[in-house]
Simulated scan of single mutants.
Amino acid sequence: MGISLVRIDYAPYGQNPPHTHPRATEILVLIEGTLYVGFVSSNQDNNRLFAKILHPGDVFVFPIGMIHFQVNMGKTPAVAFAGLSSQNAGVITIADTVFGANPPINPEVLAQAFQLDVNVVKDLEDKFKN
């Protein structure tokens, strides 16, 4: 049909970490709780952050391919529904993909890319091993 729908349940202070859907735009409606949501625009747009705190009934759109996130800001669970403009939107979780690559990306490459000490990169890679 060209669309998909997902219910997302967030634990108190839980998050859906930075990720992207390479084949779909996402529209999220908050049903319960409070979420801090946002996406980062492209490099050509100076990587601007578009973010908002959502309350029940609020809606937010994440454009196709943009890195985005949601974080429960409250002490109680939050519930949202998201529609995606593809039945196969795909998902690429940024930290899992970069630090959990198999085989691992050379830590020197990631250290330079993220401006981190190589030992910090190695520690992150250990945390994200499959």
Rank of each mutant, 00 (worst) to 15 (best):
G14L: 04
D45A: 14
P63L: 11
Q87D: 15
M66W: 10
A89R: 07
N43P: 06
N72C: 08
R48V: 13
V79I: 14
L35V: 07
E32F: 04
P18T: 04
G74E: 10
D45T: 12
A80D: 07
V91N: 03
N16R: 11
N43C: 06
G38H: 02
P22N: 08
N16Y: 01
N46C: 04
I94P: 01
P18G: 06
V61T: 15
I94Q: 06
G14M: 05
I64W: 00
V37D: 06
I64G: 04
A78C: 11
G90V: 09
N72G: 09
G74V: 07
V29Y: 00
V40L: 13
N72E: 09
N46Y: 13
V29S: 03
F39H: 13
F69N: 10
A80M: 07
L54I: 07
R48N: 07
R48H: 07
M66P: 02
I67L: 12
P17D: 04
S86R: 08
I94Y: 02
F50I: 14
I64E: 15
V59M: 13
T76Q: 13
H19M: 06
V71R: 10
H55Y: 11
G90D: 06
L84T: 06
T93G: 08
N47M: 07
N43V: 10
I53K: 13
A89N: 05
N47P: 01
T93V: 09
K52W: 02
V61G: 03
N16I: 06
L35S: 05
Q15Y: 03
V91F: 01
V29T: 14
T34D: 04
Q87R: 05
G74R: 05
V79F: 05
M66A: 13
G90E: 10
L35I: 04
G74M: 07
H55I: 01
M73K: 14
R48T: 11
D58L: 04
H21E: 09
R23Y: 11
A80S: 15
P18C: 06
R23W: 03
P63T: 07
L30W: 00
